[in-house]
Amino acid sequence: MTEGNFVDYVKIHVASGNGGKGSAHLHREKYIAKGGPDGGDGGRGGHIILRGNKNLWTLFHLKFKRHVKAGHGEHGGKQRSTGGDGEDQYIEVPLGTVIRDTETQDILHEITEDGQELVIAEGGKGGQGNWHFKSSTNQTPRYAQPGIPGEEHDITLELKILADVGLVGFPNAGKSTLLSVITAAKPKIADYEFTTLKPNLGIVEYRDFKTFVVADIPGIIEGAAEGKGIGHRFLRHIERNSTLLFLVPADAADIVKQYEILLDELRRYNPEMLDKDRLIAISKSDMLDDELKAELKSELDKNLNAPYLFISSVAQQGLTQLKDKLWEMLNREPEV
């Protein structure tokens, strides 16, 4: 999937169908001069329904579809015949889609399961025909109910990627390179900051045909929670990850400080982020000789409050241990 095809935010105007009018028909037949009321009910207006689809990974298919309208219910007929219901309109969305009211920004629903359906705008009810209003004192009612109008809403769809592991790091920390090495994903890679402009997903193939999903989001910079840089726009994509993998390059001026800045940005964005399992990968460690690595390890043991590993995506070092550790963390029994 190219970056241009990754769409994780769209606004849509939805309108359900109006209910059909009830009929005020009076029965007429040869030799039956006054057959009485026999007007049928109007049909229901069509619903607007959101449906989860596990085969979708983006909202790109809705990028140019800004208005969705359902069909109107048909009017009632004679001989108590009910009008047909309006055609429902389905909007297929990827799992992890959050539905907001565009005006208030309140969260209305979330789609997290394949096939899950939510009626976001109900079709109007059809009006009752005149035969419902027949009584001993009014045996030929010449009126019927009109149909109820449908609903109209402006909604915003936001995609929060459903992945097992979220990659967190500063720009140019090597996240895209790592993703390209441990998965079949082909993210854009270059030697400058903000190469990644959209989130990337990759599936890691583990032992015995097991797999897990890793999400790489654009790099975070200090102040991201206040809107600096571009990483803040995508922080929601790692809200659902059960495990966070922090990538800090071995040539960073201060590895511990970089990790603490990243942790603080996540805390300021959403304090619940700190409840997730965390693992630190010291990337580009092929630049370290044994003596430097031992010296760095001694310092990290004292100051880091999370498990860490030395890896090198380019030199293919420590990647098997990284996969083993991530798999262990993802499948750890929850503490009671």
Rank of each mutant, 00 (worst) to 15 (best):
H13N: 12
V165D: 08
D101P: 04
V256W: 03
N5G: 12
V213F: 01
D88P: 03
P141M: 03
A185K: 03
G76D: 02
G43F: 12
G20W: 01
S135T: 15
E239V: 06
Q317M: 06
L304E: 01
H237V: 02
N270E: 11
L296Y: 00
D85G: 04
D264A: 11
H13E: 13
I221V: 15
Q116T: 04
P149G: 11
P141T: 09
H153E: 08
E272T: 09
P187A: 05
T196N: 00
K30T: 05
I48V: 14
K78G: 15
L179S: 11
V165C: 09
E328H: 04
K302V: 13
V7F: 06
T2Y: 13
G231P: 05
D38L: 08
L245C: 07
I280R: 08
A315K: 15
R233Q: 13
K160C: 15
I99V: 15
V314M: 06
L201R: 14
V214S: 01
E222V: 12
F209M: 13
K188M: 08
T112V: 05
D114S: 09
R332L: 07
I203K: 14
K228F: 06
K284M: 12
K21Q: 12
I255K: 01
L279M: 07
F64S: 13
A224Q: 00
E222F: 02
Y90C: 04
L300Q: 04
R267K: 10
T177V: 09
N138C: 11
E113V: 05
A184F: 01
F6I: 15
F234Y: 15
